[in-house]
Structure formats: structure tokens, C-alpha cells
Write a protein that binds this DNA or RNA. Structure first.
Length: 560
DNA sequence: GACGGCTCCAAA
DNA sequence: AACTTTTGGAGCCGTC
């Protein structure tokens, strides 16, 4: 059973039961906004799948009122997938004129096109509320007619479950000890300074740097100034990137690298970050499911939740009597590639535990480092250096796996789209890309035009090559989390989210569960089971394992 | 002064 | 260690 939830043009909220076919059952029920939580709680007892335009619009309100829901269809996220998927390309939904659902999807899925699909000053209307039912019908029709409906149905269920997880994690927050964060900062930078002053240790490092470069007013935050000062000191570099500076020998380099490290910590996760992002002992980042073209999540505000540096993870401390179970999927992307390509040799290499050691054992390359750099090269499209040299060896040993990414790269170079395991397709290249490709074959084309076009084509090929792997890995992670969310709720015996084991953090291939200390063993088992289930859901009988590295800790900084 | 592009660096 | 993918954000700097 489904329950559609939308607001009508008059204002109040409408609830409409739907049967298994998505057809309305009974009269719509109109209630005031203030009565939504109560009505939703009643309906939830019947375990419906909620159908709504946008989880981030409705679910935070329900959570705030103490209502957890089991499952939903997020029409906005689903629309973005179905609109672009190669599996539904001929559906009515995909071939229609663009409408407000595309506009809504646009807010998170950035179209990689030089021409904006919509005028920016055009007002973005509320998602057409009366169209919720019509959109749901169109989506079901598109899925049913797809080449492999099961794949898309799984993707959309996982995507929608991910939206629930994102809202629940934002609600629960990541336990964060402001006092410990302050201690960490003080250790690196010196005590918290007044207003806009530079912390003492950072100030001392800056003084050493200025002395070493004989440049008393140098502002090292300005790449221009820094480059000039380095030049005067006889250090010829093209950029001020740390890895380039590390190659130099000069008394100024040590304080400069130290300054960069400390200045970064201060500006990205210093006291200002702490003041604006941590309230009542919790960090509440806003996750954006589907925010990355590949299907990975993005995060908004909250100072880059998905870039949380290891330096400050020590401030993430479990509540008294509680623990963190931190789990990350080891070498996820190579395993995904092995599974989706059906490359049994590569799957075998990963079955013993350490994927890269398995590659070495198979004789494809000689060292673990070579295996790692070669695999990264295969997935990212390296052509130069050691990685580029090792690639042919890998291609001989694992023709199916390497063939899959090579094919994806060639498709991209021709401007075609590629599709993940479950059916998310890549965007098409933008107008300027297509223009320079066609110009490169024209009469007026110069060698420079042709070479620029080739470079752009290869660049897009690297994107599509990576898209299929990164996107399919993101799908695996969604399935993993959806499974885990369900079993954590069961472990909690139906208790409220924050009273039961619950997800508090997610970073692409890593999750953090906050749970009572007595339940850590059960949670660890649940996390591992959820990973195994995700593999079976996506790849059926293909013998690929997805081992996890699990740590039970009081403090996130202790994990890895 | 606001805005956008650029550089740099954090994460996976 | 980067090369090669996807991001978010701070600070600088030229332009409007």
C-alpha cells in the first residue's frame, strides 16, 4: 500500500491512499498542516510506502514531531534518475518537455551543460503538488517498461531510503565535544585568540617563514605574493602546491608547509567552524543525496561534512555508555568493477581479503603498490607514469574488467552516455564540447583545434570511465545503508531513532553507527550482514565479497 | 562592496 | 607522491 502526501493549492495537506497499482483508493483526506504528524503516525502503523515530492521537504517536520517512517518514494530523486537513464529513454517521462520536476532535480543534479536548462531569474515554483499522483503514475510506467525493471526498482528504492537516512542523520546529529575540539585546536595552533588575531603558534611559524624568506610583510595566503617571494629566494616553482614545495630544499620550506597545514586547519575547521556548526553537542550537516552526478551524496553548509579531516575526528566522542561502530568497505571500487564486469579472475583476486595482494598473487603485477596504482589508473584513466605503464599488464590479466572501463571511456569520447549497474546514466557533454568536436573535423580546423578537441574528448572519456565505477559503488553504498537502517531499527526493538542504534555519519564508503555499548557486537554483525546483502542484491550469484574494516571505538579519531 | 574565477586543500 | 575521478569551502584578486 502507498500513501501519497502533498499540499493542495488551498494550503492544507492532502493524504491519499493508493493501492499496489498506484491507483487511488478512497477519498483524499485534507488536513491542516498542524495535524500532519498525528495523521502520519496513524497511517505509518499500516507500514505504507509514502509517496511524496521531496523527502527533505516533509521528513524533517515529521522527525521533529517524533514520527519515523519505514519507506518512501522520493519523486524528485527518482525523476532525476528516470529522466536521464538509458533504460527508460523512450518512456513518456523521459521524452516529455521539461517541467517543474526537472527544475527541482536541477537544484541538486548539476547539468554539465554550458547552457543552463532554465533561466536563473525564472521563479522556481513549488513542485506541482496536484501533479504528485500524475508523476507517480508516469514513473511507475517508465520503470515497468524499462529493459530490466528490477534494477531500476532497486535503485529507486535505495535512493529513496538514502533520503530517509540523510534526514535522520541530520536530525540525530554527530556527537561532537566542543571542549575536545577546542583542545585539539589549541594543541596545534595555540590557545583561542581574541576576535581576529592569529593564534600564537601559527603566528610564530609565520615569523619563521618571513625571516627565512627575508620578507617581513609576506602574506603566504596570497599565491602571487608567495610565488614572488620564493622566486626572490631562488626557488623556481610554477605553483605553491604543497606537494611541489616538498621537492625543494631551503630553510623556508619547512615553516611554509607547516604554515599551510595550520592555516588550513584554522580556516576550514577552526573555532569559527566550531561556533557555527556544533550546537548542543551535535554536528548536524545537511547531506544532499544524489547531489553528485555519479549518484554520490554531496553536503551543504555545515562546513563540508564529507571532507571532515582526520585531524579533528578526535572531537567526535560517543555519549556515556555508548560506542561508535565505524565500518568502511575495503577497496570498494575495484571490487565493484570486478562484480559488474563479471570478471571472475578479478573477483577471485579479491576473495582472500586484501584485493591488491590478490592481484599480485595472480601474477599480473609484482608488488602491492603496483597493483594499487594500476587499478587506480584503470578506474581514473591514467595514461602516463607508472600507472599508465602497468595498465596493459592488468588488461591482459583481467580482460573483462579492464574492457568494461575501456568501453566506458570510448563511449564518453564519442559523446555517448554510460550507465551504472542499477541504471543511473551519465549526463551528455555540454554544448561547447560538442562544438569543438565537430569543428575539429571541419575544413577550417587547425592542428591546434584538433588536438584540443582530442584532449577534451579524452577528458570526457575519463569522466565516463570513472562514472560507471564510482556510480555503481555509490549504489552499493545506498543498498548497504538501506539494509543497515532497517536492521538497526529492529535491533533497537522499535525504540525511537536516537534511543536505538542509529546511523550518525556517512562518507561514500564508510558509515558510523552510534549505539549502546552492550549492542556493539550485534551492530557489527548487522553492518557486515548489510554489506553482504547489498552485494547479493546488486550482483546476484557473482562471487564477489565486500569485506568491511570495522572498529568499535569511543572516539572517531581512533578508527583507522 | 558584490560577484565570479582562480588556487589550494580536505575527503572518498 | 602524483598521475587520473567526484566534490565543498576559504581566501585572494580582478571586474563590475
Amino acid at each position: 500500500m502507498y500513501v501519497a502526501l502533498f499540499s493542495s493549492s488551498e494550503g492544507p495537506v492532502v493524504l491519499q491512499r493508493l493501492d499496489a497499482n498506484g491507483d487511488a483508493r478512497g477519498a483524499p483526506r485534507t488536513i491542516p498542516e498542524s495535524g500532519l504528524a498525528e495523521a502520519a503516525a496513524e497511517l505509518e502503523a499500516g507500514h505504507p510506502r509514502w509517496v511524496w515530492d521531496d523527502t527533505s521537504r516533509w521528513y524533517p517536520v515529521l522527525l521533529g514531531a517524533g514520527v519515523r517512517i519505514e519507506r518512501c518514494v522520493d519523486l524528485r530523486l527518482s525523476h532525476a534518475i528516470l529522466r536521464n537513464s538509458a533504460l527508460t529513454a523512450s518512456s513518456r517521462l523521459a521524452t516529455a518537455e521539461s517541467n517543474s520536476w526537472d527544475r527541482a532535480a536541477q537544484e541538486t543534479i548539476e547539468q554539465l551543460d554550458d547552457h543552463a536548462l532554465f533561466e536563473l531569474d525564472e521563479p522556481v515554483p513549488d513542485l506541482a503538488d496536484e501533479n504528485t499522483l500524475a508523476e507517480f503514475t508516469l514513473q511507475r510506467e517508465a520503470i515497468a517498461a524499462a529493459d530490466d525493471p528490477r534494477r531500476l526498482a532497486l535503485l529507486l528504492a535505495a535512493e529513496s531510503a538514502g533520503a530517509l537516512v540523510a534526514a535522520e542523520m541530520m536530525y540525530a546529529g554527530l556527537p561532537w565535544r566542543a571542549d575536545v575540539h577546542d583542545q585539539i585546536l589549541s594543541g596545534y595552533l595555540g590557545p583561542r585568540p581574541q576576535a581576529a588575531e592569529r593564534p600564537a603558534i601559527l603566528d610564530a611559524v609565520l615569523a619563521r617563514l618571513r625571516a627565512a624568506l627575508e620578507s617581513p610583510d609576506l602574506n603566504p595566503d596570497s599565491p602571487n605574493e608567495l610565488l614572488r617571494a620564493l622566486g626572490v629566494a631562488g626557488l623556481m616553482v610554477k605553483s605553491t602546491r604543497s606537494w611541489e614545495l616538498k621537492k625543494l630544499t631551503h630553510p623556508a620550506i619547512e615553516p611554509l608547509l607547516e604554515y599551510k597545514k595550520l592555516a588550513r586547519l584554522l580556516s576550514a575547521n577552526g573555532w569559527h567552524w566550531l561556533d557555527t556548526n556544533v550546537r548542543d553537542g551535535r554536528f548536524h550537516p545537511e547531506y544532499v543525496p544524489g547531489g553528485v552526478v555519479t549518484g554520490r551524496w554531496a553536503s551543504k553548509g555545515g562546513g563540508g561534512a564529507l571532507q571532515l579531516p582526520k585531524q579533528i575526528r578526535g572531537a567526535v566522542i560517543a555519549d556515556p555508555g555508548w560506542k561508535f561502530v565505524v565500518a568502511d568497505a575495503s577497496q570498494l571500487e575495484p571490487r565493484i568493477l570486478a562484480a559488474m564486469s563479471g570478471d571472475r579472475g578479478m573477483a577471485e583476486a579479491g576473495s582472500a581479503g586484501d584485493f591488491y595482494a590478490g592481484i599480485v598473487a595472480s601474477g599480473a603485477v609484482e608488488t602491492r603498490d603496483q597493483a594499487k596504482v594500476a587499478m587506480l589508473g584503470a578506474m581514473y584513466g591514467a595514461t602516463t607514469g607508472e600507472s599508465g605503464r602497468l595498465m596493459p599488464k592488468l588488461a591482459r590479466a583481467y580482460p573483462r574488467a579492464i574492457g568494461l572501463v575501456e568501453q566506458a571511456a570510448r563511449d564518453g569520447e564519442r559523446g555517448e552516455i554510460v550507465t551504472t549497474r542499477l541504471g543511473r546514466s551519465s549526463p551528455r557533454p555540454g554544448a561547447s564540447w560538442r562544438e569543438s568536436q565537430s569543428e575539429a573535423y571541419g575544413e577550417a580546423a587547425t592542428d591546434a583545434d584538433a588536438s584540443r578537441a582530442r584532449g577534451q574528448a579524452r577528458g570526457w572519456g575519463r569522466f565516463t570511465r570513472n562514472f560507471v565505477v564510482q556510480g555503481s559503488a555509490a549504489e552499493w553504498a545506498l543498498c548497504w545503508m538501506a539494509n543497515l537502517r532497517r536492521s538497526l531499527h529492529e535491533l533497537g526493538g522499535g525504540a525511537w531513532i536516537t534511543d536505538a542504534p542509529h546511523l550518525v555519519f556517512f562518507m561514500h564508503d564508510e558509515v558510523v553507527v552510534h549505539c549502546p555499548a552492550a549492542l556493539t557486537d550485534a551492530v557489527e554483525a548487522a553492518v557486515r550482514d548489510a554489506a553482504a546483502d547489498a552485494g547479493r542484491l546488486m550482483f546476484g550469484a557473482m562471487p564477489v565479497t565486500f569485506p568491511l574494516t570495522v572498529a568499535v571505538v569511543d572516539n572517531y579519531g581512533q578508527a583507522k
